[in-house]
Amino acid sequence: MKQKRMMAGFTEKTVLLAASLLFIFPLYIAIVNSFKTYDQIVKNPLSLPLSITFDNFRMAWERSKIGELYLNSIFITVCSLILILVTASMLAYIIARNKTRMVSYMYVFVLAGFMVPAPAVLIPSLKTLKFLHLDGSMTGLFLFYAGTYMSIAVFFYVEFIKTIPQSIEESGVIDGAGTFTIFFKLVLPLLKPCTATVFTFLSIWIWNDFLPPMYILGSDHGRTITTGIYNAVGRETTDWNIVFSCSVLASLPIVAVYLLAQKQFISGLTAGAVKG
């Protein structure tokens, strides 16, 4: 009986392992083929690279100016994140602590942003940004992100702050500290897990975003990593060696962020699911 169950577990695991490998098979294809010459890809697309060549990466780096694209994307991602994390946590602190009718209306108003599909904001945003003389600028793009991701960041922070006991803040009040000191010295450090979650989510979404940078930055004002490699590769191209090396280069930094913050990412999803 016990042996039979062990056998069943073994079969289940084997099938599961095979299914997992099949699932990430497209990633295998992208990675191994980024190290092959074009001819090798056509001849042997499935095999491991026989002789590893870094020429693709060199060509991709030079042709699509990956270095410049990295800097643009890092600048935009970092600026949006700082702006969102600071303003959203401050706003959420008020929403979580002051339970007046006015504040709860404000929360509903901010949460309504969840329902808005990003393209609905993009087209008219081009006009508001132009009005503010921010069109075609990276500042315009990161302000756009701050606006569109405010809802989700505030939601995460509000739900998290609600779980923090208020005794710490009360002791701060007794010591005569002002709201600013209490928030930045006492509360903000406690929000670290939540900040990590919001940071991971938003950095992945902003780094990978495609449509808004394409139209807000346009072609003359620098490109992000995604619009940059899209443009370098072009739609008709079949230079798969370049396509794959560009793809690998574009994904490396964000995969690194993900691997470093995997726990926060999953706990964030969990929080969202349990809240319902």
């Binding site: 959420a92 942003g113 508001t128 405010m150």
Partner: peptide
Amino acid sequence: PGILIYFVFMVVPI
């Protein structure tokens, strides 16, 4: 600050 950013870059465009 949060409300202002949300208003200018989300609500106004809509």
